[in-house]
Write a protein that binds this DNA or RNA. Structure first.
Lengths: 192, 192, 192, 192
DNA sequence: AATGAATGAGTATTCATTCAT
DNA sequence: TATGAATGAATACTCATTCAT
């Protein structure tokens, strides 16, 4: 693939990310994307096999970036609390930066087994990364703890996505609270 | 509405729960549901305004049952740990019993604002119930803690839904672990 | 048919005249009419065989009234000009009084051969009445002249139906002009 | 639009004129038209927005031809009687040639405001042309006389459309009679 | 490589009519 | 007679994908 082709490939992905993120999979027409990219409808099919595959490619690029950055953050943080904090921060900031593209996560194609498999793979890699951190620290049952940690983060992202007024400061507070809850539990907060 | 009508209304909901749960919203044809219910296509429209509304009604009935049972469990449990345990158990058992209907949760109509609003309402009521338990126990920032707790449970349900071999025993273990993590944190598990 | 039945029969026709006249054949639902008449849907079918037949019956009643009155007017007028004037007056006043029911004339069922035949019959009787007047006065080719006269009137009714501001005075003026044109032609109006 | 496209556009209009004219708007399926034109169903929608718009386009093309020819005839005729004769001839010949397409005029879509507006516009242009002829000849109240003249013609066309045996000779006779009636009236025909 | 005209499968919904009560 | 719940036929339109140029 030539340099020019690589650029067109990226341009299509950029447009698709924009439009899918704004209107969702089903409300997006191929022509919406190709017009936004300034190319003909047929051209998209030279680069991607189908609308579903284009959506998959958008998602894949996004997730690969997520995981690359995640692993970088984990590698450059020290200690379990430090690493957990970076993980939480990364998770929440990621969605904070994609507030305008929520439909990418909530209006995906409903019945594409290929996409399902891919998403499952990404979640596994995310899981594995967190599990690795916990194992390294000597945590037993890292599978359970990793899932629980990610679950917390995933629920907390909701406010970020759908509450227009959520600030970066509140986000940082959530990060600290989550790490603290995960490590020390909530009991110590109770009035005896 | 007569008794006979109430029964037909329920019968349609039962069929819709079955078929939507098995094939998802988009892959289900109205005729699939009405044939399964043994009625004519037009009859469905005497009871529900549209396919979307039928899906909403199925979801609503299910969620109302979820919340009714949840509140019952909370009321009849004692102490914070006891109540948290019942909440976790309820959440996970609910999905355990609906393993055969996963599409109900993952293949809903993508862009029905009415349904979105309704789901949001149910999540709020779920949140409020958990928050109430935490507040009662004197927990500060109950909003944050409730979200984190529900997040953990929601992530853990995934294995239940998609891992065919998940047993009731494993489920009970997950419940105990979750309560323990939530109250005491994970740090104490570390090998120093 | 009992008296009560005759009354219900008329009540249904009255409702149908109202609703068909306001919304047209295709945009009128049987239930619109029966609700307006305060009866059940099925009851209509005890009095009329179908929606088309109901429309036909409405039209028939209206036309029969038109023709009855027409013949009465013709009988009680003297001389050709007098009779022609009454005919014109009757035609235009008839539509003037039905300004609120235009859809009865312009949104009839499109493909009901029965109705077509019936309408044709009424037009023939209308024609015959006018022809009779002309024949009586010794007019040759009364078929042609009757058609021409009715054609003029029918075109002139349009303003009455669709021009909201049309007054009874203007209507009377039209009547006089039409009779005059028909008898004496337009040439004498020319500036030589 | 390329030459090939212009041709396809016309081909669709031709087919639609045929089928609408034979079966009427409501009894014509889009697939009837596209099959007759030898194209796919979707292709029609590349050229026309909807079934209604296609019908409008057919009607428009037909009326534009009618008005073009009308104005040509008027321009090339001399004197009021000559011009009136050409108008009558044109009106009646037009329908004579469309005897096989009556449904185009009597089974149009019932409630398309766009089409109503368009038809109104064409009638106005027809009116204006006739009015122009009368005004030019110094006729007072040309609005009334134009309407009356067109009304006569419009009623006379009926025999042409629905009487299978109507000949061109009879048509010419009707034309002469109509002009004569319009100019000189019918009174002079009376036996005193 | 790029184009964009042509294709055609696929389905929710309405409402006149019936008939058991 | 009157009711009204149940029926089921019937059809326009969209848009992802193809392929001749």
């Amino acid at each position: 693939m030539s340099e020019a082709q690589r650029e067109k490939h990226e341009a299509i992905l950029d447009s698709a990310f924009e439009i899918f993120g704004k209107k969702g999979f089903y409300d997006t027409k191929i022509s919406d994307i190709t017009e936004h990219a300034g190319i003909a409808k047929g051209t998209m099919y030279l680069y991607f096999k189908s609308k579903e595959e284009l959506f998959s490619a958008v998602t894949r690029r996004d997730w690969e970036g997520f995981l690359r950055e995640l692993n970088y953050q984990i590698k450059h943080a020290d200690g379990l609390p430090g690493k957990l904090q970076k993980i939480a921060e990364h998770h929440l900031v990621y969605y904070y930066e994609r507030k305008a593209h929520t439909k990418l996560f909530f209006h995906a194609p409903n019945n594409d087994p290929e996409l399902m498999r891919m998403m499952h793979g990404f979640l596994s890699r995310y899981m594995a990364a967190v599990q690795g951190v916990l194992e390294e620290a000597g945590m037993p049952d890292p599978d359970f703890y990793a899932k629980a940690y990610i679950g917390m983060l995933d629920r907390l992202k909701m406010d970020i996505l759908f509450e227009g007024t959520f600030t970066r400061e509140e986000l940082e507070k959530r990060v600290r609270q989550t790490v603290c809850l995960f490590l020390q539990g909530s009991e110590r907060e109770l009035n005896d």
